[in-house]
Design a binder for these strands. Structure first.
Lengths: 374, 374
DNA sequence: AATAGCTTTGAGACCGGTCTCACAGACAAT
DNA sequence: ATTGTCTGTGAGACCGGTCTCAAAGCTATT
């Protein structure tokens, strides 16, 4: 097959039909793999197709079948390895089922999320997987659902939406992590999250518009109260977005007269900043501060000391969400499911006994730490 | 077929036209934003559109315009934060220009890459960005190019393809890193890469099918030879895919009678495994082994000691590749460009003076690893 | 008043597939 | 020989947009 000239017009069923000496309908049947055709005709068409280098136009196909063979994914931030893994899971499940994936990035902005929904539905994706940026502003999601297009929520739930959701057992996880800290003797535990907020100080649940964080805070608060800790919410901090904000939050927290002795970081990006800040302050982990992080990011196992984490099977979340979505696309009419995937606590070495505040001056214990974790 | 009852029939131009009491052509003109219409008619149509909740079918639009407003991206592994960042760059540039992105994952398998190309061209993407898994098997890419569809190669070059490419100055980077090691006194430097290979031992350039790695090895070899190091290639190892393989390679290397005193890790995933293995062997960084890694992954700055890295502006690579692609899509007929982006060496603390091999007590190596759960 | 020139509008072809339906021909049963 | 069933094939509508073209409407010029 020689093609040195710039063939702008691509080969269509019509061309193949002509070449094979059959009608367009017949060629389309064998090329499209539907309807019947005699062996002889089939061979002729296939031969012609090969000679001409026919490549079906999936767009045209989609427009007449009504399905696109594509699922749309809207994720908070692709750059975040957490979502990267989820996307990988989705992508694996999708391609195994013969679907492919259009990815859009919301950057955790509701406006961009709405845009993305519009664009993807405009492209007639067969279904959508979304990590909703806000649990409160969901009209666009509701519309998707009402239009009859399958929708699966990933990682974050939106109550009352009546769609399938695949999430972690965030509340249990946070609660277990908190209990672990309490068991080690901690009574002043900070919880730091990246959720947007005008004020870093936590006042009420209404401030929080992300189900995961809400669940986690609930778990944290429950476990704390159950252990008889007073006003555990006073050490909750929000808005740890970016390096500067996180640094300030951690520094302020650790300079409090009655400073927290342990920190629970709501996600791995925050955790990294917390870790850097603690280290930058010359404090020692776990002697001066204990730390637990959400998500078993790769870096958490190579720090000194390695970080105790709540491992979230986010790849599986992706996989499962795509599977459910595809099932829906294929027409299961079951009631919407809420799949809750279990997390595991991986104990490493970032938890120690709390320092008594009268014993240890917070900010100048810079020892050159040459200890190997072993 | 029963597809008409699963989805609510969507509102078309025809519906809007009817409602507004104008012809389909007129409604289409105002809805599509092309052609002219009187203010009065425009208002009527817009009103009707709003009432009915009209959402254009981008598929239908694409099929008649021939443009899809979508760029296809085929990447080696989305899970790898390196590519995650690149995708983010592409996605940002794309959405700024009004394009969106279909993402496919090749898993570094040429077969899946070919599939992905077929699928994406089938969906009539306006252009493609690919990180080619192999520099040798490129017929599918050549065909894309010859069909007139813009193609940009990202991160990895394929010589003689005649398309735009955006890559790092890998050779210079490797050379600079090697010189830094040599300056610190190292003469036995290992280079470890993940490129597939039947044999871990490097024999010739022909084994390597990835331009980046080839460039880097060239740079490594050049710098070594310039410093008069004999047979520097003897410490090159390939096939460090996955945890087990990497572990074996590093262990074997460090158990050599004349073991290397420094390691250059070809990418951040390999580097992480190298780091873990070194630590697992009970060796001290940088006292026993020095390490430089490609890519400034987040974990490299929080280890003890932090790792000296070659920072690759991969986000910018993504951004730039998308920009060039979009320019081509819009019809620039300039000669294919090869954009080479500069890397920077970030010196941290993983480089020390080499130990003389007669100094290294086997006992230290014997002081082996209590392994950690991870 | 008539002609030219411009803007608006509508009819309908078109993109590249799918899919319905009618019909032709083969073969079996009556 | 007639009827019925079944398979293979072709004609053409259809999906939901874009876009060409010609007719209609309006203003301006002579």
């Amino acid at each position: 097959m020689e093609h040195s000239d710039t063939y702008k017009r691509s080969v269509t069923v019509q061309d193949v039909a002509q070449r094979a000496g059959v009608s367009k309908a017949t060629a389309a049947r064998v090329l499209g793999g539907y309807g019947a055709a005699s062996a002889a005709v089939k061979a002729k068409v296939l031969a012609a197709s090969k000679e001409l280098g026919y490549q079906p136009n999936e767009l045209a196909r989609s427009i007449s079948t009504g399905r696109s063979g594509t699922i749309g994914v809207i994720v908070g931030d692709i750059e975040n390895p957490y979502f990267g893994l989820a996307v990988r899971g989705i992508s694996d499940a999708a391609s195994a089922a013969g679907f492919d994936v259009i990815l859009a990035n919301s950057g955790e902005e509701i406006e961009k999320e709405r845009d993305a929904v519009r664009v993807l539905t405009g492209k007639r994706v067969d279904g959508l997987i979304v990590t909703p940026a806000r649990a409160s502003e969901t009209r666009h999601l509701r519309e998707v659902h009402q239009s009859g297009r399958p929708l699966v929520l990933l990682d974050r739930a939106v109550p009352g939406l009546g769609v399938d959701m695949v999430v972690c057992d965030d509340k249990d996880a946070a609660s277990a992590a908190t209990r672990l800290l309490i068991k080690a003797g901690h009574r002043r535990i900070a919880y730091i999250s990246a959720v947007a907020s005008d004020d870093a100080i936590y006042k009420s649940r209404d401030q929080i518009d992300t189900s995961t964080v809400m669940e986690r805070i609930d778990g944290f608060l429950d476990a704390s109260r159950q252990a008889g800790i007073e006003r555990p919410e006073r050490f909750i901090r929000l808005g740890a977005t970016g390096s500067a904000a996180s640094h300030k939050i951690v520094t302020d927290l650790l300079n409090l007269p009655e400073r927290p002795t342990a920190i629970l970081a709501s996600d791995n990006v925050v955790a990294l900043e917390v870790f850097k800040t603690i280290r930058g302050l010359g404090l020692l982990l776990p002697d001066d501060v204990s730390l637990i992080a959400f998500h078993d990011a790769d870096w958490t196992s190579v720090t000194t000391p390695p970080i105790t984490v709540i491992a979230q099977p986010i790849y599986d979340l992706g996989l499962e969400s795509a599977r459910i979505l595809i099932e829906r696309i294929r027409g299961t009419a079951a009631a919407p499911r809420q799949v809750v995937v279990k997390t595991t606590l991986i104990e490493r070495q970032s938890i120690g006994a709390p320092v008594r505040s009268d014993e240890v001056p917070p900010s100048r214990r810079a020892r050159a730490s040459k200890r190997m974790a072993s």
